[in-house]
């Protein structure tokens, strides 16, 4: 029985790991893009500045890109991930009578990864923004007076300093992601909890449910070691 349960939970771990790694793979770069969006200072209507008409004058200050991204981040961070999963997976079928997820081989997982990616990218974007803004202005200015391009300044000067700053908050968020994979069961993905819980119905035993904690702990333990190693790797500068 023990091995049967372990094997079943390990299968759940496979689903959870797939969700975890795919989410990280796509949400890290997307989060960086969103963080740039939220910092955008682009004001397409700035020529209207100083107009008599108060509406036009106000329009001049609007930064559409940062306004839109900040609104999206607010909506995504302001609603439960579980609700977002339900809306994304069941919404199209319920309201539009069409289920696009059937088009994919593993539609449930696809919808789940998509939702997780967008959700986590929004959280990451805020951490990235903090990291970028946490690099002193003098660093960018030093790059500028040395004739470096904006791209060179970002990749050669800012990026590593930003990464160093974001590792602790990112490790928090990534550890949360491990446990958030359990939300996938709401759209019937057999992740770790669902795999453990299923033995209550089939065999009337509860210990497999609590046994799942061991797997989360092992996963998070490995991640903790990894983050500790990364932090030590970047100890060489301050």
């Amino acid at each position: 029985m023990f091995w049967q349960v372990t094997l079943s939970i390990l299968k759940g771990c496979g689903e959870a790991a797939e969700l975890f790694f795919l989410t990280l793979l796509f949400s890290l770069p997307l989060g960086l893009v969103i963080s740039f969006g939220s910092m955008s200072k682009w004001t397409p209507f700035r020529k209207l500045y100083g107009r008599q008409n108060r509406f036009l004058h106000g329009l001049a200050r609007i930064r559409p890109i940062s306004t839109i991204t900040n609104t999206v981040v607010w909506i995504i961070r302001g609603t439960p991930l579980m609700l977002q999963l339900i809306i994304v997976f069941y919404g199209p079928g319920m309201w539009f009578d069409a289920n696009p997820w059937n088009l994919f081989a593993d539609g449930r997982m696809f919808a789940c990864v998509l939702t997780f990616v967008v959700n986590y990218a929004c959280y990451f974007s805020v951490i990235f923004r903090g990291g970028i803004e946490g690099v002193p202005v003098g660093q960018r200015e030093a790059g500028q007076v040395l004739g470096m391009t904006k791209t060179q300044i970002f990749f050669k000067v800012t990026l590593l300093q930003m990464i160093k700053q974001v590792v602790p908050p990112m490790s928090n968020e990534i550890i949360t992601l491990v446990k958030d994979t359990s939300l996938a069961r709401i759209i019937a993905i057999t992740e770790i909890i669902k795999a453990g819980e299923s033995f209550m119905k089939s065999d009337g035993i509860t210990w497999p449910l609590f046994y799942t904690a061991v797997f989360y702990l092992a996963f998070v333990g490995a991640l903790t070691l990894l983050f500790g190693w990364i932090e030590r790797k970047m100890d060489y500068f301050r």
Binding site: P136, G138, Q139, E141, A142, G143, Q144, V145, L146, G147, M148, T149, K156, V157, L160, Q161, K164, Y236, F237, R238
Partner: peptide, 29 residues
């Protein structure tokens, strides 16, 4: 960017790049 190169700048707060050695700081740009 090119015009800036007429001028060199030494800041009050140094603004060295912390992740590079002294030599790398000098040679990077």
């Amino acid at each position: 960017r090119k015009k800036r190169l007429h001028f060199g700048m030494v800041f009050q707060s140094f603004n060295l790049f912390p992740q590079y050695t002294a030599l790398e700081n000098v040679t990077l740009a």
